[in-house]
Design a protein around this nucleic acid. Sequence first.
RNA 1: GCCUCCAUAGCUCAGCUGGUUAGAGCGGCGGACUGUUAAUCCGUAGGUCCAAGGUUCAAGUCCUUGUGGGGGCGCCA
Length: 477
Amino acid sequence: MKARRIAELLRTQPIDEQVVIQGWVRTFRNNQFIAMSDGSTIKTLQVVVDRETTDPEILKRINTGAAIEAHGTLVPSQGRGQSVELVADDITIHGEADPEKYPLQPKRHSMEFLREIAHLRFRTNTFGAVFRVRHALAFAIHKFFNDEGFYYLHTPVITASDAEGAGEMFRVTTLDLHKVPMKEQGSIDFKQDFFERETNLTVSGQLEAELGALALGKVYTFGPTFRAENSNTSRHLAEFWMIEPEVAFCDLDDNMDLAEAMLKYVVSYVIRECNDDLAFLNDRFVKEEQSKPKQERSEWSLLEKLAFIVEHDFERLTYTRAIDILRNSKPNRKKKFNYVIEEWGADLQSEHERYLVEKHFKKPVILTDYPKDIKAFYMRMNDDDKTVRAMDILFPGIGEIVGGSQREERLDALKARMAEMDIPVKELYWYLDTRKFGTCPHAGYGLGFERLVQFVTGMSNIRDVIAFPRTPGNANF
RNA sequence: GCCUCCAUAGCUCAGCUGGUUAGAGCGGCGGACUGUUAAUCCGUAGGUCCAAGGUUCAAGUCCUUGUGGGGGCGCCA
């Protein structure tokens, strides 16, 4: 008989049917009740074994973590706490989990401990919920873009251009590091490397996505991205997944509309499809908040935060207006900020972003039209010649979740900007060609996928929303 | 990269201004009970107090260095 999944059995409740389930033991109570999980849902199915007729040797091996298969009949539960249960007539142990050595117990473990056993942490309620939600978000993103007429473009992971200026890069090479081939002048001879030139892991697929957008109209990328920055925070990874839509004939307002619609779509998708997991994560979130000091505590539960995102328009304002608000804010006047805002042109610190989002507007904020000096070369210059058509979407708790812009489509303006910022024009001839031939206004943005998962699951550390986090000094598993 | 905090049983943690044999809960093992819900009750075993130096009559506790980890900041998504 084919095994069925617990999620399906709990949904359809085929009473009196003979069924088979396969999964892992969460707890074994009273030598009689197995709480069994098969990953299909956060809920467990209670398997009732007859301790009189079941071989004691089998009973002894039913421990937390063991993989088992249960054959039996689904019946209404006699106990409280579940509506149906499986009365087993046969139990097979597929794989034991020696309770003396198995690190997971039916109790609360710290996130730090679970991070050190990342190969086993999928088996906990929290990580089961996180990875089901992560999947649902990824699926919803593909569905949203597909429904909107976008094409999923696979941009390269290995890139030769280091001109993007998005951060430090990881080198890709097959050269023998013990005897690197040198040229006469003392520089490394990359002609002998695999690609016969210097190559790195991508820090962004944007430039390539622009090429696709200027033919296919609407494209998006969704792939791994690498930054060799020595960033040690709860919101940074060396390897993370990024979504980068790029749209032709699109200005900054359209771009903001798209980003806001996408975020609302995926959040409401998950609210609809991941009920049980979100309910669990919500409880977890609320408990964690209660343990924090009062002024750091979130006013809302996780579910309230998610509902709020879907129901309210994001606040849109220019950088210039944001500076005015910040300059006149209480913490600025009382010099409570670590970095006091003195004048226009200053880069916003995360304390300022947090003030705007969490204190002043109390909703997601989209900041636009930043000073050109603090933004990338490819952003479209405004008529004031001082600001560019950039936008950052700031979310409560995690800060910047989206960074995007309208792209500079005018060849002369782009070249001038590249010269000013020492971007090698020659190397990026292919990028400039799109401005030479059939250029048009276009725009796009980058969404940090793990930051989105962080927001939706309420997990406070980004290392707990990706299976095997890569951070400075850590590439385990 | 900078600033901070932490490391005690398999896990979560307590251990006061340095002072005798380092504690609890969970988990393990043995038993009792049996429709339980992280089951309960009784008993029991379990420790290189992260490592290496140092101060002291005496170090889990103080100092130095190292290792591992957390949090904050910067860089960003």
